[in-house]
Amino acid sequence: MSLSATNEDHAPRAGFASRTAGFFRRYPEAFAALLIVVLCVAVGLLNPAFWQLANLFDILRASVVRGLFALGVLMVLAAGGLDVSFSAIAALVMYAVTKAVTLFAPDMGMLSIFIMSAVGGALLGAINGLLVNTLKAPSLIVTIGTQYAYRGFLLTFIGTALFMNIPPAMDAFGQWSLMSRTAENGFTVQLPGFVLVLAVAALATWAMLRFTLIGRAVYAIGGRPDIAERLGYRVSSVQLFVFAWAGMLAGIAGIIHVSSNRLANPFDLAGIELSVISAVILGGARITGGSGSVLGTLLGVVLITLVNNVLILIGIPSSWQTAILGLFILCAGVFFVLQKRAG
C-alpha cells in the first residue's frame, strides 16, 4: 500500500489514474473485492461482533442458492444474453420434483433427486434458448415472458399449497453439516454440506469457460457475434447450451433451497432475479457480453449477501437495503463505463 503511494508521488497524476484504470480493466473482480473489504472493515469497526466464524458460516449458507443462480446468469451474460427466468425455473423444478418424489418414490436417494432436478431445469432452460434463437428478440424480453409462463404454470397446474414433509433424503441432506460453531449469542451455527455443491458448480463452470472449446465460444459469441459466426461457431447451439446450463444450475439451486428450508413453497424465490443479476454485474461481467469470470461472480454474490446480512449490525434499518443495492449497481455501472473510457 505504502509502496504504491510513493510511486504515485513520482509519477504524473494522469499516469496513476490510467494505471489504476488499467488494473481494474485487467482484474474487474478487484472492484467487488475492494467493496467487500471496505464494507467488512467499516462494519467491523462499528460493531466488533461482526468478526466471528459463525457470521462467516451464515454468509456462506446464505450465498449458496444465489451463487448457483449467479453462475448461470454469468454464462448467459458472457454469451451476450440476459436471463431473468431462472427463479421461476427453480421454483417450478423444486416444487414439481419434491411433490413427485413425495408422492411416488418417498425413499429416493439424494443423487437421483439432484439428477432429476438438473435435467428438468436444463430442459426448461433449453426452452428459453430455443425461444431466444427462433424469436430473435432480446433475451430479456423473452425470458420475462417465460418467467411468467413457468411460474403461472406452476401455480395453476401443479399446486399452490406449502409442502412441509419433504422427502427424508432431502431433509437429511439439508441438515448435513461440515462444521459447527456456537456464536457469542448462544446460537449454534453450522457450515452446511451443500456449500460443497456451490464449490463443485463453480469449479465446473470455471473449468468449462477456461479450458473447453464451448467456453471460448461463449466469450466469442458474447463479444462479437458476427465475427464468431464467421469463425465457424454456431451461435444458436451455443445459446441453447448457455440457457440450458443456467436452467440446470437453477434446478439444483431450487432443490438446495427446499432442503435447507425443509419446506417447498411455490411462492418462494420470486423477486430474487435483480439481486442475482446485480451480483454478476458487480463481479465485473459486462452486460453487453463477452466478459465475466467465476471468481468475480462469487465475490459479487458475497458482496450482495453482505449487504443483505450485515447492514443490520451497524444500525442501518433493513428497509434501506434495496436502495443501497441499487446505488451499488449504479456505481458499478458508472465505474466500469468510466474506466473503459479512461483506457
Binding site: L274, I277, S278, I281, I287, W320, Q321, T322, A323, I324, L325, G326, L327, I329, L330, G333
Partner: peptide, 12 residues
Amino acid sequence: IATLGTQLLFTG
C-alpha cells in the same frame, strides 16, 4: 443496467 439499478434505487 441503468434502469435496473434505478428500479432498485427508487423502490428502495
